[in-house]
Simulated assay, not measured.
Amino acid sequence: MTPAIRAAALPGLLWAMAFDEKGCGRLLEPDEGLPDLDAFGSGFLWLHVDLKTANLAPLIDAGRVGPRALAEAVFRPDEHQRVTVEDGHVGGVVADLARPGAKPDEAGRLHFVMGPRSLVSGRRGPAESPDATRASAEKGQPIASPVLLLETMVGYVVASMAATGQRLSDEVDGIEDRVLDGRVRDDRRRLGPIRRSAVRLHRQLLGLAAVFRRLEEDDAAERLHGPTVATAARLAQRLDALDRDVNALAERARLLQEEVAARVAEESNRQLYVLSVLSALFLPPTFLTGLFGMNVKGLPFADDPRGFPFVIGLCLLSAATTYAIIRALGIRPPRG
């Protein structure tokens, strides 16, 4: 018989939770021994570790984490999303969102090995789904199997991603309303981070959906318990639907960026037109005032008391002539 391993003897173990046959979870005390999963009975065990400080060698050597090669591959520092099936165990790395209070849109990774009566999960940074799942189990939510435990954790990830997508969609809706009303402000600057967040979310969803599609289609998965494949199919469909929404959001943000840029360019052209017309109108009067302001002999109207009104009249006439030429040439302000 494999000797009992106590929770306190595993460095980096964040918690150990035992679930009974009814799916009710109970946190194990540090000095309490981990249940022998090879013994007769029902229920399962959930271990969650901090992979930065954890030492899983005793569990791996004792065969508590599934096949050695699978466990060592899953818990290594590689953060690429993937899934592997071996000897009735499923190991993988999937996307998770950082705990609230971390950097916005920060991506995390959840490593796991799932067996018939156990789930060992780990993370290298603050992740949201394990903490949320633990809180739900402590409040009495029944979780009947490791498959449902994994589905619950991934469900929190999907819900967080969906909430992030909804928040981004609401921001895009507000910007779109202002653009349609012609009230373009600093929206182009706001659309950049929104589009960047949507693209990051799409990448996470794409990888996460691919993991569960591979699990659903893996030939080795046929030897697993039926609910595992069914769970993978449900999650893949849910992730695909959310990914389509996020893709549509990113495309809306891109089109709005182009429209806002066109509106800004149009407003700039209109302002340049006004400045150009003003410059053209003041150019002849400026020339005349400079001409009559030369300090030389022989200037006309120098001694005529009506010289100043005459020069003013010439300036106005030159500006009016310039304006008439502009209209005759068909130069018009840009239209919206």
Rank of each mutant, 00 (worst) to 15 (best):
A4D: 13
I5L: 07
I5D: 04
I5W: 00
L10C: 01
L10N: 02
L14S: 07
M17K: 03
M17W: 00
K22A: 14
E32V: 05
E32M: 09
F40C: 08
S42G: 14
G43N: 09
D50L: 08
D50K: 02
L51M: 07
A54R: 09
N55D: 15
L59P: 04
I60S: 14
A62W: 13
H80G: 11
T84N: 14
H89Y: 13
G91I: 06
G91C: 10
G92N: 13
G101S: 07
R109M: 05
R109G: 02
H111E: 07
V113C: 07
P116N: 11
R117C: 02
L119F: 03
S121D: 08
R123M: 01
A127P: 04
A127H: 01
P130F: 08
D131F: 01
T133G: 00
T133M: 08
T133S: 14
R134E: 12
R134S: 10
I143P: 02
I143L: 12
P146L: 04
V158E: 09
S160Y: 11
D173P: 00
D181F: 04
G182S: 12
V184N: 07
D187T: 10
L191E: 12
S197K: 00
S197D: 13
Q204K: 01
L206D: 15
G207P: 04
A209W: 09
A210E: 14
F212G: 03
R214I: 01
R214D: 14
L215M: 09
E216K: 05
E217A: 11
E217I: 01
H225A: 13
V229W: 00
T231P: 01
A232D: 11
A232Q: 13
R238A: 10
R238W: 02
A241W: 11
A241P: 05
D243Q: 15
A248K: 11
R252W: 07
R252Q: 12
R252L: 06
L255P: 02
L256A: 08
E258Y: 12
E259H: 09
V260L: 04
E267S: 15
E267V: 14
E267H: 13
E267M: 11
S268D: 14
N269W: 04
N269S: 12
N269I: 06
N269T: 06
V277A: 07
V277F: 09
T286P: 11
G290C: 01
L291S: 13
V296S: 06
F301Q: 11
D303I: 03
F308C: 02
L317H: 06
T321R: 06
T321E: 08
A328G: 11
A328S: 11
R335M: 00
R335F: 01
